[in-house]
Design a protein around this nucleic acid. Structure first.
Lengths: 362, 362
DNA sequence: TTGAAAGCGCTAACAT
DNA sequence: ATGTTAGCGCTTTCAA
């Protein structure tokens, strides 16, 4: 079987000799609607100064011909350059460092797609600083903003202002609830938490004991959601396991190590640990110091040099990971589509979570 | 911190008044090299009829200016349409059916990127038919071919011919070893097998017994590789588990059910099953009929209506899945890049494998 | 071997 | 309210 799809509308057949057809252009529309190019352009771009009846004629011609604007030609003509600004946390952890590096790479290749990328780094977990950065982007008059969100009323307000100024906003990795952001690009964090629980629960088999949770901050939505998903499944499917309240380590190794060491000292029956944020070097440090036997099962997020080694050493059992490179690429595609009001495939934003065991390390 | 990147080569500053810079064009190159546009174009596109010394001048100018050709403008001018042909197996299983549906979707959206998609369906596991389809594509003069490969000398030969004819070939989902294909898009199947083993091994905990493997056909490389990875990890990390030789069910539910029922009857100590191909409806049928207690742990590939329900029912324990939509999208990006000789980011082709437990079903 | 000029599909400045 | 015309950056006749 063979499926072929070509333009097959007789109205637009141009080269009768060859039988070749090509997709309709503004010229075809103008001809059929009996108006000039400019009028077609006005209708096409929603500019005013066109009588309603004429508009109707043009629209009818477009529909009849199945006209679809050639975005590349349009961009060439108007010399459009998409000005996209990223606002990301200046975190001390390797995850955010990695993200910044990703942006460097993308900045280079995005140029080929008429996209210019700029970046601001802001202090992590700081809504005020984030909102300020957003306002600066607005003043700069960029076309779109991609940001790693921190929950805060100020930030929500700034996003609304951007939106009102016609600037598209996409959240990346961590979403902003009840906000005007047009799209979120990242993993489904509730699902990530559920996955972690599904794995950790099964790994702990029939043992009984406590589970420790290590988070970065409950001010970022991804951490809140991971915790939520984790607790959902733990309560529903592994009720024999006792969940300790989360430790907030600020994604910093030193704090994580101090706080977790404390907890491990207090409880000698911790059989599982879920770390849903950064600072896993500290997590490992605490585990090594405690030296519990049998060692607890450990599920963490983000594959870094640290966590990879820990996986190989059998200290960590599973690492959940999101592909930042792909996320940034998706964010760019999506924000350009938003700017051009092109329909967006729902699947574009959802990045799948990867699970690494020591057996499938890349 | 804020990073901004703009063109900043004084040679190409055009509007001195505004201080605005723009990237260099063929005109700039022509001016600097003191030749005409056509000559620049000839050099740019490797056409002959240009004296060596002139060529050198032009190239020097390009380098000096940091010229990079605007692909969109070029495509507009030459009215280029990428003619991409997909060859996929006409399998009876939902996986391939799904793939065909994906292509329908992509055909529609690819038009916007000057890409026209055609599809042929060929009998599965049939190298001869596949090779014939490839030859037909060559005769049709397409720009690129994307295919789900079956291992066969004939196919390898046909791929070489396509390559020789200047037609790019990309393999999708299942690769073709020792062939001239330019790229593979799909999951790392060895890694998928290893992952399956890592999970199944841990799920089987300390139990002893046999593990059954259900494959489609050892003629497709993805199945061979999954088996390889699976056995690697099983032998290395879970030596207490005995692997039975793989059943080849041809990805068909009926055959899988018959063959597996047989095996389950022969062995009453099967504690784990890994199904690395299609036909999982048959797998479930066999399990239901056998009704072993305790039920074996089951890891399968491809999330379908069947496997989703089985997961929810607790009959399957994990489903490994590849995102076909994304794979097709990647294949399109890659083959276009190959056709235009644009550098390809190595990560573009690698699609990550997803793992579903009942806890994280989407 | 080289160059001048027209045109791809669309937009925008400048007429009417 | 509508039309004419000159580009955007590149390719492609057709001349020289």
């Amino acid at each position: 079987m063979s499926i072929a799809r070509r333009w097959s509308n007789p109205d637009i057949m141009k080269t009768k000799e060859t039988g070749q057809m090509s997709r309709p252009t503004v010229h075809d529309v103008a001809r059929v609607a009996k108006v000039s190019l400019s009028t077609v352009d006005r209708v096409l771009n929603g500019r005013d100064g066109v009588r309603a009846t004429t508009q109707e004629r043009v629209r009818a011609a477009m529909k009849q011909l199945g006209y679809e604007r050639d975005l590349m030609a349009a961009n060439l003509s108007r010399k459009r350059i998409y000005d996209i600004h990223f606002v990301i946390p200046d975190g001390p952890n390797s995850f955010m460092r990695n993200l910044a590096a990703e942006l460097e790479t993308h900045a280079r290749i995005a140029l080929r797609d008429r996209t210019e990328i700029t970046v601001s780094l802001v202090p992590p977990f700081d809504g005020r600083a984030l909102a300020a950065a957003l306002r600066r982007a607005k003043e700069a008059g960029v076309d779109g903003v991609v940001m790693v969100a921190t929950e805060s009323a100020e930030v929500r307000q700034a996003v609304s202002e951007l939106r009102a100024a016609g600037i598209q906003v996409v959240t990346l990795i961590s979403d902003l609830s009840a906000s005007a952001r047009a799209h979120f690009v990242g993993i489904d964090n509730v699902s990530a938490g559920r996955t972690a629980a599904g794995l950790l629960g099964r790994f702990c088999a029939d043992r009984r004991g406590r589970i420790a949770i290590v988070a970065g901050s409950m001010l970022v939505r991804d951490h809140v959601e991971r915790r939520l998903g984790f607790e959902q499944v733990m309560h529903a499917e592994f009720p024999d396991l006792d969940l300790l309240p989360p430790i907030e380590g600020g994604d910093e190794a030193a704090r994580v190590e101090a706080l977790l060491s404390d907890v491990l000292r207090k409880h000698d029956d911790i059989i599982g640990i879920y770390s849903l944020g950064g600072g896993n070097r500290g997590l490992r440090g605490a585990l090594d110091r405690a030296g519990a036997v049998p060692r607890p099962m450990v599920v963490v997020h983000e594959l870094t040099d640290q966590s990879r080694v820990a996986l190989q050493d059998g200290v960590f059992d599973a690492v959940l990971q999101q592909d930042i490179h792909r996320e940034v690429a998706s964010a760019l595609v999506i924000i350009r589509s938003l700017i051009e009001a092109v329909p967006i495939d729902a699947r574009t934003g959802l990045v799948h979570i990867e699970i690494f065991l020591r057996d499938n390390l890349p």
